[in-house]
Write a protein that binds this DNA or RNA. Structure first.
Length: 787
RNA sequence: GCCGGAGUGGCGGAACGGCAUACGCGAUCGACUCAAAAUCGAUUGCCCUUAGGGGCAUGUGGGUUCGACUCCCACCUCCGGCACCA
């Protein structure tokens, strides 16, 4: 009698799945297409191939694979693909450090990921595998770029951008965290550069509205995106500088406080600033201030604690509601990126304006009375951000400010002094990267024709080989002179290629569509394939992508739908975010030396143990601390299940019906049905795999309790066999090799071809309804009424 | 400051408003061993009691209910996100 030997079992089934291509599914029009089955697209976020897979990957794919298996056994045709997000900075930085070309390091890593995914026994349709760094893939990334360009959704513009001096590249706003580069932690600087942008702001409203189309996303992810988009309702109001005949529109969420504006502030980057100060006494001081601000780090500038600074311009604007002339300032607390880069300052009702007014000794004019019970902040209760009746506001005096709000906007709109407006915090997506290891932007610059898109038939614009990957403030591609020099596709004259590459988030914004038709050399995808599988029914990944990747992919889906190439508005109808695994309570990192190598555990305990453990640690959406003892515990359980199977496998067993009479045996059968019911419910309740696995453990424990002394009886042996087979069936989504092996030994055939077991309500009732013990009159009445 | 999420044994964590603490880990004792490992069995929320038994426990304080970890109100603590966004 051999013990549980995962190596033999796992190799056997992995070979079989590979040979039989068990998990491959066909598209419409292909042989084997399951037209009559409901479809389900189960997808885990594709890995970024750098080095070896870590436990985060193990958890993500173990959870995703369990979901895929559940869906299959609930009668769905499941598409479950895999690929690699293989462009990006780490491979390039490694190249700069070691001299190894990024392609080589990346492809080695991909090979390792691929091999380990197979060793984990993940049920992937490998015929659809893709890697975003291959010309076969990025050709279509470029194609999408050009479609967006045609629609005006990709545009080139000079803009102040976030620049990381260490990585020598610009970053998207989303990649700047606390004023630092998300990747390397260096403080970012501001620079003005010509860059490519995607006009995601045009979709701000739809990105917000279409949360309604989603079936199930974690509330906090939706909230994070909502905050990021940052929709504010208010009004745009024009203030006029009469001396220079210039209008300065401002955005305000508080048009009801317009009468309280006592000064006016421009951002240091405001384009009209130069005109306002040229030749005035303020000129020198303002320039110095602007230069000083420009040198400051984004982080320092964003510090709320810092005292307010600024410089008067010596100019004034007229408040359109009352004709008052109010002085103009430049101050760094006003941001060029938000609104119009200029504000009307209402110190009585805004904390920042109030602070500035105190620092510069400016008048504070209250226009909204506080409620009676308002506890004063300062001696006079200002700044007061709340509601109340209007005062010092001309014809609006005495009205409640909420009421006056709409009336003031309407009044301004009558003669074009202002109008209702909506503003977003969201900015356009900066996609240019002055880096080598990315998809080249498929554009040519011609002296005569300007920006010329590369014609579709000339795609892909292949990434050339270079020797030096180190960026020097321009893309390393600029050094590939032969490649840069080209001819204009429009007029044939000498022209130069764009040398920037695309942000890798562009690559990953559409990969889930390419999976559906990844071998298609003639198109990005076949619309019939996309229609048949999209949207992704269940998306699984880390919460760290809550804003970046998930919002970009939503934007792409909408833009592609508008182009007529997709028929869905949202890419992922259900999202599941798995929690992070820590070790000794800390985030794993190589520098801390607390990493866990999945390969090591798979080698020692087998993939089934490793996979089941990460699903058992706790609720999968929550994080958990890795524990070697916990792994042992799961391994113990699988070994016990194996032993149960071996022992019962040697016995004569009767028909289950004949066994079902005796008390203990009946109890075991009830337990099996309870476990079936529990695992099913835990899955449906949001992938509560930890408790589902617990139920399987309880079933095995119960089988052991019953087994001793009863196995000699063929009837009892049949019940134990039933319990073992049931446990194997239930555990299959987590430990597929062992589940398949035990099922084959006890029942014959393939467990994944069995429909998911359904609990017998009669046997269930026995276990669950006996719980009413100390019943009082009322409850007993209710039970009797029900019975 | 704003927005989310969470508070249950020594630990991870279970509980359609109905036996709180399932399952796992750890710990203690025992069986098998020359011994260890593995395996198997027993015990394991806290306090009191020789025992039988009793008392107290789901962050804190109230409320609804025959009955509350669960629902309602207030508060405390921790974690995550956003933050000079006008």
């Amino acid at each position: 009698m051999a013990g549980y030997d995962p190596k033999t079992i796992e190799e056997k089934w992995q070979r079989l799945w590979a040979e039989e291509k068990t998990w491959e599914v066909a598209n419409p029009g292909q042989p084997g297409y399951a037209a009559d089955k409901p479809k389900s697209y189960v997808l885990e976020m594709l890995p970024y191939p750098s080095g070896e897979p870590h436990v985060g990957h193990l958890k993500c794919y173990a959870v995703g694979d369990a979901i895929a298996h559940f869906r299959r056994r609930h009668g769905f045709e499941v598409i479950h693909p895999m690929g690699y997000d293989s462009f990006g900075l780490p491979a390039e930085n490694n190249a700069i450090k070691t001299g190894e070309p990024p392609r080589e390091a990346t492809e080695r890593s991909i090979a390792s990921f691929h091999r380990q995914f197979r060793e984990w026994g993940i049920s992937i349709d490998w015929s659809r595998e893709l890697a975003t760094h291959t010309p076969e893939y990025y050709r279509w990334t470029q194609w999408i770029f050009l479609r967006l360009f045609e629609q005006g959704l990709a545009y080139r513009e000079e803009a102040p951008v976030q620049w990381c001096p260490k990585d020598a590249t610009v970053l998207a706003n989303e990649q700047v965290v606390d004023g630092r580069c998300e990747r390397c932690g260096t403080e970012v600087e501001q620079r003005r550069l010509e860059q490519w942008f995607f006009k995601i702001t045009e979709y701000a409203e739809r990105l917000l509205a279409d949360f309604d189309l989603l079936e199930s996303w974690p509330e906090h992810v939706v909230t994070m995106q909502r905050n990021w988009i940052g929709r504010s309702e208010g009004a745009e109001v024009s203030f006029r500088c009469e001396e220079l005949d210039l209008d300065f529109p401002v955005f305000t969420t508080r048009p009801d406080t317009l009468f309280g504006a006592t000064f006016f502030v421009l951002a240091p980057e405001h384009p009209q600033l130069e005109r306002l100060i040229a030749g005035t006494p303020a000129e020198v001081e303002v320039r110095e201030y602007v230069n000083r601000v420009a040198r400051e780090s984004v982080e320092d500038r964003g510090d709320e604690e810092r005292p307010k600074t600024g410089v008067p311009l010596g100019r004034s604007v007229v408040n359109p509601v009352n004709g008052e002339r109010i002085p103009m300032f430049v101050a760094d607390y006003v941001l060029m990126e938000y609104g119009t880069g200029a504000i009307m300052a209402v110190p009585a009702h805004d904390a920042r304006d109030y602070e500035f007014a105190r620092a510069f000794d400016l008048p504070v004019k209250r226009v909204i009375e506080g409620a009676d019970d308002d506890t004063a902040r300062d001696d006079d209760g200002l700044p007061y951000p709340g509601d109340g009746p209007m005062t010092a506001s001309g014809r609006f005096d005495g009205k409640h400010n909420r009421e006056a709000y709409a009336e003031i906007v309407a009044w301004l709109a009558e003669d074009g002094r202002g109008e209702a407006a909506v503003n977003y915090r969201l900015r356009d997506w900066l996609v240019s990267r002055q880096r080598y290891w990315g998809a080249p932007i498929p554009v040519v610059y011609c002296d005569a024709c300007g920006i010329v898109p590369v014609p579709a038939e000339q795609l892909p614009v292949e990434l050339p080989e270079v020797d030096d990957y180190a960026p020097q403030g321009r893309s390393p591609l600029a050094a590939a002179e032969d490649w840069v020099a080209t001819e204009c596709p429009r007029c044939g004259a000498a022209a130069r290629r764009e040398t920037d590459t695309m942000d890798t988030f562009v690559d990953s914004s559409w990969y889930f569509i390419r999976y559906l038709d990844s071998q298609n050399a003639g198109a990005a995808w076949d619309p019939a394939a996309a229609d048949s599988w999209l949207p992704v029914d269940q998306y699984i990944g880390g919460v760290e992508h809550a804003i970046l990747h998930l919002m970009y992919a939503r934007f792409f889906t909408k833009a592609l739908a508008d182009l007529g190439t997709l028929s869905v508005q949202e890419p992922f109808s259900n999202l599941f975010t798995q929690g992070m695994i820590t070790r000794d309570g800390a985030k794993m990192s190589k520098s801390k030396g607390n990493t866990v190598s999945p390969a090591e555990y798979v080698e020692r305990y087998g993939a089934d143990t490793a996979r089941t453990y990460v699903c058992f640690m706790g609720p999968p959406e929550r994080g958990g601390d890795w524990s070697d003892e916990g792994v042992e515990g799961v391994n113990r359980f699988l070994s016990r299940l194996w032993r149960l199977c071996e022992e019962v496998g040697e016995r004569e067993t009767a028909e289950l019906d004949q066994a079902a009479s005796e008390g203990e045996v009946r109890e075991l059968l009830a337990k099996a049905h309870w476990a079936i019911d529990k695992v099913t419910r835990d899955f449906e309740r949001g992938f509560q795999f930890n408790t589902a696995i617990s139920a399987a453990m309880e079933l095995v424990n119960e089988a052991y309790r019953v087994k001793d002394g009863l196995l000699a009886d063929p009837g009892a042996a049949a019940a134990v066999r039933f319990a073992a087979a049931t446990a194997a069936s239930l555990i299959f989504p987590f430990a597929p090799h062992l589940g398949a092996e035990i099922w084959e030994r006890l029942e014959g055939g393939r467990v994944w071809e069995q429909p998911w077991p359904v609990a017998d309500p009669e046997l269930l009732a026995r276990d669950t309804v006996t719980l009413v013990v100390q019943v009082n009159g009322k409850l007993r009445d209710r039970i009797e009424a029900a019975a």
